[in-house]
């Protein structure tokens, strides 16, 4: 039987944009928070069989992220791309991904990275799960398939919570939970041999343009400025003991150490 797992991935921008955001293959790569997620999915597949599909929404430059996933060993790649999607905020993105995922029903599991390295909202995973109306658990540290349910652990502050979840379910994976595998050279060679990424546009998803892109986005980023952090170096006075005492006091007052 095996597990049918879908992983939502994103191609992120490597360097912070100075003025206009220009996405090319040179400047983008697979979101680093998605790599442990792919690892989690591939390990489940190795243990229980089945298949792993990746789905991504983004411009053509996102193809490299899909190829990278393919080099790691996924079975099917889908790119959701449409001019009408430009300007989508997290809600519109979740709407598009949700529509894409509905086309992939039935599946057992949808996985997301906790967040993306270039926008950092952490909203797409939970919002998409709400769109689909399936149970969602965030920051999953470990997961185990037990015939018809998943047993998962999630970290919450200093607690480890344990859940039993029915399928289909959606999780975000803790970035430290799985060390992503190294890609073998053969895998990379094969991943680029033939063009096999499936492309879906809005019509394929059955979505109206007003639900996505600028039109379907209730939020808008008005401006983006680099924050300059200034570092101040201060020399503590007195003998070694006095300096140490002063340092301890400041660290504990600032909450960096202590109870």
């Amino acid at each position: 039987m095996g597990l049918d797992i879908v992983v939502c991935i994103k191609s992120v921008i490597l360097t912070a944009p100075e003025e206009q955001m220009l996405r090319t293959e040179d400047t983008s790569e697979l979101n680093p928070f998605d790599r442990p997620v792919l690892e989690a999915a591939l390990r489940l597949k190795e243990l229980h069989g089945g298949r792993v599909t990746v789905i991504s929404m983004g411009p053509e430059a996102s193809l490299s992220a899909l190829s990278e996933a393919r080099a790691m060993g996924v079975d099917r790649e889908i790119l959701i791309s449409d001019p009408a999607l430009v300007g989508s905020d997290t809600l519109a993105t979740s709407t598009a991904l949700g529509a894409g995922l509905r086309k992939l029903v039935p599946f057992d599991l949808v996985l997301f990275g906790v967040r993306t390295a270039d926008s950092d909202t952490g909203q797409v995973g939970p919002q998409t799960s709400v769109q689909l109306g399936i149970p969602f658990i965030s920051m999953v540290k470990s997961l185990e398939w037990q015939k018809d349910v998943f047993r998962v652990e999630r970290v919450a502050d200093h607690f480890l919570e344990e859940y039993e979840v029915a399928t289909p379910a959606a999780f975000t994976i803790h970035p430290g939970a799985f060390q992503p595998r190294d890609m073998g050279l053969s895998g990379i060679g094969r991943a680029f041999e033939s063009e096999r990424v499936e492309r879906w546009n809005l019509a394929d998803l059955g979505l109206m343009p007003e639900r996505v892109g600028d039109a379907g986005s209730p939020t808008r980023v008005l401006s983006m400025k680099r924050i300059k952090e200034t570092k101040k170096c201060e020399f503590l006075k007195g003998n070694a003991r006095e300096q140490a005492d002063e340092l301890m006091k400041r660290l504990s007052d600032s909450g960096a150490i202590g109870a």
Binding site: S64, E68, A191, F192
Partner: peptide, 13 residues
């Protein structure tokens, strides 16, 4: 620009 996406992924990995 003289490198393809495959080459970039080879280097990255």
């Amino acid at each position: 620009s003289i490198l393809s996406e495959k080459h970039r992924i080879v280097r990255r990995s």
